[in-house]
Structure formats: structure tokens, C-alpha cells
Amino acid sequence: MLSNTFNSPTFNSHLEESLSELSLLLDEEDWEAADRLTADLLLDAVVQNYSGEPGLSPETEPRHRPHLSTEALAGLPCQLLHALDDRWQRASGGHFGFSAQLQVYAATLETIDFDPALRNWSTPHPFFEEVGWLMLLSLRPVGFLRFYSWLDFDLEAPRGHLPALWYWRVPRIASLQMGGFLTGQGGGFGDLARLDAMMLRLSRCHQLGG
């Protein structure tokens, strides 16, 4: 099991630094750098979780180095998610951040027509369309995500467009499985399990906050 060593003092002081650096980047509206830092911090937390119980990590992650897998997302520390979301929301006036994404996601859940067999191929999850992560081809979007470097790193982007790298940064092999081009930086069809894992995690953490 992933243990939570989020509260260890060394991690905290390091985290404080990183969070103030994030605030700085966000204030400068350097969205891309802020997005990278956000993904780094999430990955750090995952690494921390695995190193907390070293006996378990080889079993859970046999081949890859730790990445933001479905299981890893489900175990992200709520405190960290709140902290990151708080910085993003404040800098963008609620336009970017996990909360914005969760709101968009929850709204799409109300309308989505679930068809487990077909959904991934013909129709993308409406969330991708809403937040502007889809590659727009001709008139109709297909379930094919943009390359990471093609995202809009400014406030003109749709609501919940950023942070995005937590979703794009996957092992090359996984991106191939999703129909991408082995870049590990997007392109290909989204992995709904990871998206939902993140959103589920966010909503669970929200309940903790009360």
C-alpha cells in the first residue's frame, strides 16, 4: 500500500520552497513552467509514497520508474492537491486548477452517454473537448489529444485547460498503448481511467476538506 509520508519534515521544507517557486511562476504567468513544476511535485509525492514502504514498491511498479498511474493518482496526498490547486486558482482567478477541472468533469458526467464499448474510439469524453485538450480536425473533434507543446499556455485557453502535464506525462510504453507516438508527451487517445482516477481523487479530497 502507498503510505503517506507527506508530513515528514524534510519533505515539508522542500515542498514549501517548491510551492513558493510555483507561486512565483504563476504570478509571472509562466504557465508552462508552472505546469511542469506542478507535475514534478505530484510525481515527487508518488515517489515519496513508494519509498515510504520500500517493500511494496517493486511489486507495484515492476518495470517503470514511478509515474502518475491510476493507482498513484488515487493515493496523492490531499494536502498537496489542495495546495497546488489553491496556487493555480488564485493566480488565474479560478480559470485554471484542479477544482476548475473537477467542476468541468462533474458537469460533463451529467450529460455523458455512457457506452463502454465505443466511447474511446468514436467520441471523446466531453471533458477533453470542454477543456480544449482535443486535436481539432475539420469540423468535428475526434478522440485524439493534442501534443503537449500544442496546448495554449495563456488565459485565453478554455476553463480547466491547465494544469495538464499530470495527464500527459506517461511512460512511453503507456502512450503507445493509448495510440500515441511513443513521445510520452501526448498525442493519442486519452486514458479515461487516469482521468477519472484524478477526478475521483479530487472529489474525495474535497469531502475531506468538508
Partner: peptide, 8 residues
Amino acid sequence: CCPSLSDR
């Protein structure tokens, strides 16, 4: 018990 729910 689930880390993710939406697709299954």
C-alpha cells in the same frame, strides 16, 4: 476500493 471508476 477503486482508484478509478468511470470506465469500469
